[in-house]
């Protein structure tokens, strides 16, 4: 393909992403501002000031929750994608797709009420367990890290299921048959054949989920009862009520850099893993 043609076909997309890149540059510039409320002068202070427990703690919480939720989402998304790939009836496939998309559609605040009704301290689960005499004090599933984790898993699930579902198209019956009819167990078959074939979808899904959850904002607010200070919330606090916008920009840059770092590392490791596996 000629250079001109490449450029011509890329151009419209580049044009639409330009305002976003301008916003990124703006944030980048703001993170070196000497003034907290406006771009003015040049200073490293916004970054240096991040070295306080307010920021460091939320950074650690964010990466812990984003990593855990990514692992859980992938563990749930692979079986879901496999089931969806095998469903033959069109109406059932439609129903499953719509069900999985649900967390992205219904207003998050309203969904949080749904969870409170189910898992809250006086919710359906706790009341039933108490009536059965299994517990005397309610189990706290919400308004702490477990509640946030649940919410992160729920909202990110569709982001992982669909890439993995696309990857299942690469698996043909021959693959499975060739390996599995000869007496290999279903588990072996899954780990030796299915999983490696799904890998591009899994990596793509996991990266999206990690990035999406690392910058989560509404979920920690609604299901964490504000007690789980993830970075998205901390950045909101910097913007208002702290009105430290250069600090918010610097915190944002650190979050972005670390997210991209983690994604690149994951990419590198999986590539290495593939290569060594191939060689052995």
């Amino acid at each position: 393909m000629s250079k001109t043609k490449i450029l011509l076909l890329c151009f419209p997309a580049l044009l639409t992403i330009t305002p976003f890149l301008a916003a990124c540059f703006f944030i980048f510039r703001f993170s070196f501002s000497a003034n907290q409320g406006a771009i003015e002068g040049f200073s490293f202070t916004p970054y240096l000031e991040l070295a306080d427990p307010f920021f460091i703690r939320s950074l650690l919480t964010t990466f812990k929750l984003a990593s855990f939720s990514t692992v859980i989402v992938i563990v749930l998304a692979i079986p879901l994608a496999l089931v969806m790939a095998t469903v033959q009836k069109p109406w059932l496939r439609r129903l499953l797709s719509v069900a999985i998309l649900m967390p992205m559609i219904l207003n998050l605040l309203i969904q949080s009420y749904g969870w409170i009704i189910l898992l809250g301290p006086t919710g359906v689960l706790n009341t039933s367990l108490r009536e059965l005499g299994l517990i005397s004090r309610p189990i706290m599933l919400l308004f702490n890290e477990s509640g946030v984790l649940l919410g992160l898993v729920q909202t990110a699930l569709p982001l992982a299921v669909f890439p993995i579902l696309t990857a299942t198209r690469n698996i043909s019956e021959e693959h499975i048959e060739a390996a599995c009819v000869n007496g290999a167990s279903h588990w072996r078959c899954f780990f030796d054949i299915t999983l490696p074939l799904l890998k591009p979808g899994i990596i793509s899904g996991a990266s999206i989920v990690f990035a999406y959850n690392a910058s989560a904002f509404a979920i920690p607010l609604l299901l964490g009862g504000r007690r789980v200070q993830m970075l998205g919330v901390a950045i909101r606090d910097y913007i208002s009520p702290l009105f430290n916008w250069s600090g918010a920009a610097a915190a944002g840059m650190v979050l972005i850099a670390l997210t991209i770092g983690v994604l690149a590392l994951a990419n590198y490791l999986t590539q290495r893993w593939t290569v060594t596996e191939y060689q052995s």
Partner: peptide
Amino acid sequence: ILTFGENPTQIAEL
């Protein structure tokens, strides 16, 4: 603490 009162209606429901 069970929660912070970020959302008054949520507190009312609780």
